[in-house]
Amino acid sequence: MRRSTSRRDRGSDRPRRSRNPSDRLFRGATLGFALAILGLALLVAWQLFIHSKLSREQFGWSFLWTQTWDPVAGQFGALPFIYGTLVTSVLALVIAVPLGLGTALFLAELAPPRLSQWLAFMVELLAAIPSVIYGLVGIFIVVPWVRVHLEPALSGTLGFLPLFRGAPYGVGFLTAGLILAVMVVPFITSVSREVLLAVPRVQREAALALGATRWEMLRMAVLPYARSGIAGSILLALARALGETMAVTMVIGNKPQIAASLFEPGYTMPAVLANEFTEATDDLYLHALIEIGLVLFVVTVLINGIARLMLMRLAVPAGPVKR
């Protein structure tokens, strides 16, 4: 994220340990806050771990690759939910990254300042809409549109791919991905826009002075500089997509299955928690649901970790561009 860039930039002028008591007090206080966040995350993980005991003992690791979810028979497996969470999140990013990044580039580099400010405001407004509203819009507007127009059009043109086959229900992975994409675009756009605006003027002027066109300037001088910040915005969007509950539940069809077609109904981990937690009466069922929460936690940490590793790889060749 941005922090990593700026810290590297500041390099040696970072203040060393101060003798001043108020400085040390401040340092201690902020350290305490930072540790509290870490402690909170560990506490959540620990609570999820101990309260999923029955389910972990009964199913062991096979919980992760079992496809049955049968509360009546007491058979629980998380695989369809893991699959659904990953598919919808990836789909959302595939749609939202070009859209969000394109918008950010336009707002930061091309749009007249006044228009840019207005549009940025509107984009940020999208992030303030409660997710249940997205869900309702999904049910009443997007789902019928997807069923009547989008899915027949996709299967008509791209039907040779297994991704776009099957009966058009309207609800399913595709609609969930679409709704999620709209929900995460503001994260990508507003963070990326700020990052792009933070690219120093000299960087652009140098490129232009060398005779670069506007596009070349963006590609060679601006984007590499902003790369890790942009990647950070995408990470933030991904985290949001993985954890989104209400809007997804309302449009995904809630069927625990693994299907190649995006038209098919599916299920996600947050959705099954939201759906079944309140009426889960017996203990094993409850523990299985909490284990889903634990798996979601671990998957989120893993994906964020992998993305961060990729980010570090990305940042290396960009080195020379930065001062």
């Binding site: 049955t68 979810w69 049968d70 509360p71 009546v72 028979a73 058979q75 229900y169 609800v171 069809g253 809630n254 069927k255 109904p265 299920y267 759906n275 079944e276 009426e279 889960a280 009466t281």
Partner: peptide
Amino acid sequence: GTSVNWPVGLG
């Protein structure tokens, strides 16, 4: 049950 393993359908 309050939730069951549905053989068919959308939720």
